[in-house]
Design a protein around this nucleic acid. Structure first.
Lengths: 160, 160
DNA sequence: ATATCTGCAAAGATTTTGCAGGATT
DNA sequence: AATCCTGCAAAATCTTTGCAGATAT
């Protein structure tokens, strides 16, 4: 099972692609390409974490203080990106929503309800079963998301 | 693989059990068993949905208006229940946190993006894989949620 | 030149907290 | 009787919105 044409394994090309898609999306909706929007996309791309709007804003303020990006712009851009399915949001036990780029390879989430840590994983078996189930029910799948909640190894040990 | 002792398949007994566990929990922490706390537990138990604090409060106000339960009590009780791992909170993309009893059988969702219909399903294969994955990573699973988005059979036919 | 964006600050929403009277142990 | 709970309302957070100047097309 190979998929040579889609997997460049080259982060620069990958980001260029993402950025281009984003520009296209904006153009199609008569929206403008601004430095703030680019910086938000880039910061999400370069983060391995699931970011809260506040954390994202903070990162941007640190890296590009001269832009003086407002938190309102972060919220507005995240909504835009979520509506367009470019990012997805998650939330767990603690408070607030967290965002991540949806363009990354598909993966599911293991979420610790004690410390909030999110671990990503991909399981071929599960992906296959999902396709089998939807096919069986005549459902045309466009997307899916899965979260497993529980307590991570570290927090279990701490509790002892 | 049988598990005769734990599966009564009798909702009344199941609820009694849950309620007893809850009472024990309260006693152990020098907390008091109040009518509001019971009603909150019961309403969560009887709901098939994942409820927001507001929705839960609304249901309770409708069913037991004479209690005049305050939203603050709902929040306080949900925190208590969540800290004790009796309920888990999660969020499905849209806004706000949603709560459900952790004791319920797992179920996944097939969501039609055209008509909004939600179909629940359980798949043994997926359940097994989830357990295998969490075990492998030393993670203690309490709950999971999975949503598959797409277009249901009926809507596909309508579109023709 | 026009339409959209942005930061700011104010408004809305959501969640938490202090307090005084009420309920449970 | 002592302790904990509750509803209420105020406070603290989190998110959205209106506006006037700035920026992208």
């Amino acid at each position: 099972m190979s998929n040579v044409t889609t997997n460049f394994n080259d982060r620069t090309v990958e980001y260029e692609q993402l950025l281009n898609d984003f520009k296209q999306l904006l153009k199609k909706n008569n929206l403008k390409f601004t430095i703030q929007r680019e910086v938000i996309l880039e910061t999400l791309y370069n983060s391995d974490e699931h970011l809260t709007p506040e954390a994202l804003h903070h990162l941007i303020q640190e890296k590009y203080p001269e832009l003086n990006t407002g938190i309102a712009t972060v919220y507005r851009t995240l909504s835009l990106l979520e509506d367009s399915h470019v990012v997805t949001s998650l939330s767990f036990g603690a408070q607030g929503k967290k965002y991540e780029l949806g363009a990354k390879e598909h993966h599911d989430h293991l979420i610790c309800t004690e410390c909030g840590k999110i671990t990503e994983f991909v399981d071929e078996e599960i992906e296959k079963r999902q396709q089998a189930i939807t096919k069986e029910l005549g459902f045309k799948m466009s997307d899916h998301s899965m979260q497993i909640y529980g307590i991570c190894k570290e927090c279990q040990e701490k509790a002892k």
